[in-house]
Measured scan of single mutants.
Amino acid sequence: MTYKLILNGKTLKGETTTEAVDAATAEKVFKQYANDNGVDGEWTYDDATKTFTVTE
């Protein structure tokens, strides 16, 4: 399945996607991606759209 991440960081905004077997796996990938890019904030997940959002 394809999962999407929306980044609403103070210095980085954008979107990315990943292929993962489940939401938990996608979340690990996205949290590492956000961490690597210096984005740390509040996370939400919408199962209907398979979209994670992180907002600083």
Score class of each variant (00 low, 15 high):
Met1Pro: 08
Thr2Ser: 10
Thr2Asn: 08
Thr2Trp: 11
Tyr3Ser: 00
Tyr3Cys: 01
Tyr3Met: 02
Lys4Tyr: 14
Leu5Pro: 01
Ile6Glu: 04
Ile6Leu: 09
Ile6Cys: 05
Leu7Gly: 02
Leu7Ile: 13
Leu7Trp: 14
Leu7Ser: 03
Asn8Lys: 10
Gly9Leu: 15
Gly9Glu: 03
Lys10Trp: 08
Lys10Met: 13
Thr11Ala: 08
Leu12Arg: 04
Leu12Gly: 14
Leu12Ser: 10
Lys13Thr: 10
Lys13Cys: 06
Lys13Leu: 11
Gly14Gln: 12
Gly14Val: 11
Glu15His: 07
Thr16Pro: 03
Thr16Arg: 11
Thr17Pro: 02
Thr17Phe: 12
Thr18Trp: 07
Glu19Trp: 10
Glu19Tyr: 09
Glu19Thr: 14
Ala20Cys: 05
Ala20Gln: 08
Ala20Phe: 04
Ala20Leu: 03
Val21Ser: 09
Val21Asp: 08
Val21Cys: 05
Val21Leu: 14
Val21Gly: 09
Asp22Asn: 11
Asp22Leu: 04
Ala23Pro: 14
Ala23Gly: 04
Ala24Met: 10
Ala24Ser: 07
Ala24His: 14
Ala24Asp: 09
Ala26Leu: 01
Ala26Cys: 02
Ala26Phe: 00
Ala26Asp: 00
Ala26Trp: 01
Glu27Ala: 11
Glu27Asn: 05
Glu27Trp: 15
Glu27Arg: 09
Glu27Asp: 05
Glu27Thr: 04
Glu27His: 12
Glu27Pro: 00
Lys28Gln: 11
Lys28Asp: 09
Val29Thr: 10
Val29Gln: 09
Phe30Val: 02
Phe30Ala: 01
Lys31Tyr: 12
Lys31Ile: 07
Gln32Tyr: 06
Gln32Phe: 06
Tyr33Glu: 02
Ala34Tyr: 02
Ala34Lys: 01
Ala34Ser: 06
Asn35Glu: 13
Asn35His: 15
Asp36Arg: 09
Asp36Leu: 12
Asn37Val: 10
Asn37Ser: 09
Gly38Val: 04
Gly38Lys: 09
Val39Gln: 04
Asp40Asn: 10
Asp40Tyr: 08
Gly41Leu: 03
Gly41Val: 02
Glu42Ala: 12
Glu42Pro: 06
Glu42Met: 06
Trp43Val: 02
Trp43His: 01
Trp43Ala: 01
Thr44His: 12
Thr44Gly: 15
Thr44Phe: 11
Thr44Glu: 15
Thr44Arg: 11
Tyr45Ala: 01
Tyr45Glu: 00
Asp47Gln: 14
Asp47Thr: 10
Asp47Lys: 10
Asp47Val: 14
Ala48Gln: 12
Ala48Asn: 15
Lys50Asn: 15
Lys50Gln: 12
Lys50Gly: 08
Thr51His: 03
Phe52Leu: 01
Phe52Ser: 00
Thr53Ala: 06
Thr53Tyr: 09
Val54Leu: 08
Val54Glu: 01
Val54Asp: 01
Thr55Phe: 11
Thr55Trp: 08
Thr55Asn: 12
Glu56Phe: 10
Glu56Asn: 04
Glu56Asp: 10
